[in-house]
Simulated scan of single mutants.
Amino acid sequence: MTISIPLVVLLGVAVVLAVRYLKLRLWMALVCAAFGYLLAATTLAPEIDRALRAFLSWITSGS
């Protein structure tokens, strides 16, 4: 899956805001990032990719 730069930037901003205003600890954000990185290498990755694509197409279709 090719992830567009705006999506990555949007998620990065969400993490920064969560760390700053929701009192999410930096180590918690790093653990979540490491988990996501390792999850991408599992056999579950294609299903996650498919679900993310379906969700993004639903959001962008305006429904």
Rank of each mutant, 00 (worst) to 15 (best):
I48V: 15
A45D: 11
P46V: 05
I48W: 04
A14I: 09
S63W: 03
A34T: 10
L52D: 01
T43Q: 14
L30F: 12
L17M: 10
V16P: 02
V31A: 14
P46C: 04
A33L: 15
G62P: 01
I5C: 02
G62W: 00
S57W: 08
S57Y: 07
W58P: 00
V13G: 07
R20P: 00
P6N: 04
A40C: 03
L11K: 10
T60M: 03
L10N: 13
A18F: 01
T43P: 14
S61E: 09
L44Q: 11
L24G: 00
T60V: 05
M1L: 12
P46G: 06
Y37S: 10
I59F: 07
I5E: 15
S63C: 01
L39E: 09
T60S: 13
L7E: 07
L44N: 04
R53T: 12
L44H: 09
R53L: 09
L17K: 06
A18V: 01
F35L: 15
A29I: 07
L44M: 13
A34F: 11
A54F: 04
I59D: 00
L30E: 07
F35H: 01
C32Q: 06
S63L: 05
V16K: 12
V19H: 03
A54D: 06
L22Q: 13
C32Y: 08
V16M: 13
L44Y: 11
A41M: 11
A33Y: 09
R25K: 15
R20C: 05
L22A: 15
S57T: 11
Y37I: 13
A34C: 08
V13T: 14
T60N: 08
A54C: 00
V19Q: 12
P46W: 02
V13M: 14
Y21P: 00
